[in-house]
Each structure stands twice: as C-alpha cells, then as structure tokens.
Amino acid sequence: MDDMIQIDNLTKVYRAFKGAKEVRALDQISFAASRGEFIGIMGPSGSGKTTLLNILSGVDTSTSGEVIIEGQSIARLKKDKLALFRRQRIGYIFQDFNLLDSLTLKENIALPLILDHVAPQQINSRVDELMQFFGIADIAGKYPYHVSGGQKQRTAAARALVTEPAVVFADEPTGNLDSKSASDIMDMLTEMNERKNSTILMVTHDAFAASYCKRIIFIKDGQISVQIQRAGDRKAFFDKILEILSVMRGDAQ
C-alpha cells in the first residue's frame, strides 16, 4: 500500500474542567493520503482542523483512533522517538513561521540537520539548493527580524523540506501573508509537491490557498462533511470551494 498517512477513527474529546460538558473536537475521522498528494483541510472555526493537524504531527494526542505515517503508528512512539520522528520524517510550516530569532535564515533552515549531526558540507549543499529553490539564497545571512513575512514563510518551508520528510504539514501558511506573498508561497508548495513529489497536508480557511490543492477535505463539527477532488484548472476549483463553503455556512444558519 502506498498510503503515506492513514487515519482511522480518530477521536479527540476535550473537557475544559472536571465535570464540564465534553466537547468532541474530532469525531471518528478516517481518511488516507498517498504519496505525492496535496490535500487541503478546510472548515469553519472550531471545526477541529488545528486539532487534527496537531495530532497528526504528534504535538497533541488523540483520545482514541490511530494515526499511521509511513507505516509507523505515532501514538505508539515514545516521547523522544516521536520527537526524532517528527524532526526527520515530518516537515512543519506554521502560520507564525516559528523561526528562531537568534539564527540566520540559513541556520534556521539547517537546524533539523544540525540537530541530527549531519556533516557540515552536506548541510551546506542541501541548504544552498533549497534556498535557491525558494529564491532566498541572497538573504541567507540575514536574521528573521530583518526580512518580510513572505521571506520568513519561504524560510520555514525550506526548513520543513530540508530533511526530505515523508510528509509536510502546513498550518495556515498564508494566514499572515499579503496576497502576493500568499500566491508566491502557494506556487512554491505546488512546485514542491510536483517536482519533489512531497506529500503535503495543509490546513487553511483561505479558499484561494486551498485552490492549489489536489484534494480538499471539509470538516465540520469534528467530522468529514465533504471531500472534493480537483479536476481541471484552478479557477474552476476555486469556485467550487467557494460554493461548498457557502453551502456549509448556510447549513450552519
């Protein structure tokens, strides 16, 4: 089976305090993603998107159900093993970039490799290549507080890819960006997906960003409400997304 990610009956129940009414953030969600897929996850606020991503990336734990990435059930991994797995097999792009202010852009990108004690030469060539790819080679020596949001997000994307992970998770990657930077970064993600055959799972509420995906899973009240597959051009897909979103909004009212 070529499934990169496999999710079975994933459930997450929150209880704010003892005796409080429980909230089902995720309710028996199941789906799978195969290698080279570019999946968008959409849904209204509070639908459980971020919870899903947090569990997938091992930052949060599920109440029940299973997540298998590259044949590895992440719930069964010990804490440190999970950290290493995350570092080596999962790339993460955050809405707020999460770059270290004390490191240059280049060092930020190299950090996961540095932590794995990869030889400096190897790191150099790998990072240089990625910085070329993302068009940030000329600002390699700058610090995060010197560069724009778009440049920060490219750096974060390069960092997510540097370990050649099995899967890249993106959490609202365009959330903090202007429209030009947003379309730039989405172009890059698409290129990453196509040229490097990376598997990408992106959470977003931005229909424009979502239109770059190949498949979109809509979540509502912790359950999958609808899935659509892109066929044809982006413009048509974009319209389709808007249509579904408005239907979902209508349902809610």
Binding site: V59, K79, A83, Q88, Y92, L100, L111, P112
Partner: peptide
C-alpha cells in the same frame, strides 16, 4: 517560548 518552538521543530527532551 523558545522551548515550545524547539519542541515543534522536533528537539528531543535530552537535546
């Protein structure tokens, strides 16, 4: 704050 960030990147407890 830094620790939260580093953990997200995948630093082990020992690191």
């Amino acid at each position: 704050e830094r620790m939260i960030l580093l953990k997200k990147i995948g630093l082990t407890m020992a690191e």
